[in-house]
Design a protein around this nucleic acid. Structure first.
Lengths: 202, 202
DNA sequence: CCTTTGCCTGACCATTTGGTCAAATCATCT
DNA sequence: AGATGATTTGACCAAATGGTCAGGCAAAGG
């Protein structure tokens, strides 16, 4: 697809509005305002609200999938790779894209079904990587790599997703929480790495 | 507040619809249908959509807060308490209430500001409990209890919240994922407990 | 200067949606 | 039965919203 300057302006505005209000709450007029043009122009470039939404959703999912699929089997040791992934992943999540994805999938599960180029039938790189490590006896084999995978994502994503509630339940002010979250990725890395090494229970 | 049978019927219908579609996507007509009565009747009991929503949100938040605030300083050892909390918490999250809360807070942060009886100024019981354990040298003191608190919640909540995506990225079928999630709470408990005991890095 | 082409917009439309209201129905008490 | 008050509803309304369309306008080409 080409990408006119105007199209990009609309897409950025739409992304902002859709992420904040969701599909139902988003207003074409607000998208037009945000892009500083008329509602008609938005319709001129993307026929309907749904078409525009589909485009945004598709792009966001593609970006997200690309990020979480990055796990090359290069020479670095797994501790370094894990830490780098976390340090890279957490900041991305702050863009609110994730809540957007989760919310819209919940609203309409069809959005997932219709995806092409999804990693379906492609094995999860992270899981494959840890299975190899286990076969090579480089880490203990007494846990399911999928469990580590899900823990990893949960620890990275949820505090960002639910920051407001955490601030409240831990009595932190905005600034204090920000500092906490700055240190957070390395804590997660430390805890996960130690857990995988010392793992005794699973 | 009293709670007429009719009111309860409406509240349950409304909760269902609001949780599925969010505030903007919810339709008064659908709520009425779900409660098998006319739209006018819904308006008769709860003046407006917003009033009805506020009631649902308030009740959901209260229920949620009550659950996560339960951490009595009784005689059980912390391992047991932690495990029991997880085994109790994960099933609750399956009710979709959490996505509802997160989504609506994101849409309108004012919803939190206006809450009374919130645990503001009440110290977080979990954190206080672990601080005591640390003071008594019952667990190592080389980590921030708030970090454990956030990890605990992240591990419980996120896989439930984002199950659809996890199913996709780990190539699991519905049934396989369900079995995985049945075992999940105990894995989390094992991993967390082991991590807290062996903690070396944080 | 005139025409064509693509971009852009204000005015307008049809439908949806939250909300109102008077009338109908039901329950309760005398 | 009749009066009274609460409950329920269909008909209706005003505002909001996604979408359309004829025309304006600027640049390119003749």
């Amino acid at each position: 697809m080409e990408a006119t300057e105007t199209e990009i302006k609309i897409l950025e505005a739409a992304k902002k509005v859709f992420e904040l209000h969701g599909y139902s709450g988003a207003r074409m007029q607000q998208i037009a305002d945000e892009a500083t043009m008329s509602k008609s122009s938005v319709h001129y470039y993307f026929r309907s609200k749904e078409k525009l939404f589909d485009r945004i959703f598709e792009e966001t999912m593609t970006e997200f999938m690309a990020l979480i699929s990055t796990w090359e089997d290069d020479t670095e040791d797994w501790e370094t790779k894990l830490r780098m992934f976390i340090l890279n992943f957490v900041p991305f999540l702050k863009t609110k894209s994730l809540l957007f994805i989760i919310r819209e999938i919940n609203r309409n599960p069809e959005l997932m079904a219709g995806r092409k180029n999804g990693p379906k039938h492609k094995k999860n790189k992270f899981v494959v990587y840890f299975e190899k490590l286990q076969s090579a006896h480089l880490v203990k084999a007494n846990f399911d790599p999928r469990f580590i995978y899900i823990m990893l994502h949960s620890l990275c994503a949820y505090p960002v997703l639910n920051g407001t509630l955490f601030k409240m339940t831990t009595n932190m002010q905005d600034r204090e929480f920000d500092r906490f979250m700055d240190a957070y990725p390395n804590w997660v890395a430390d805890f996960l790495i130690a857990g995988i090494k010392n793992n005794t229970g699973v």
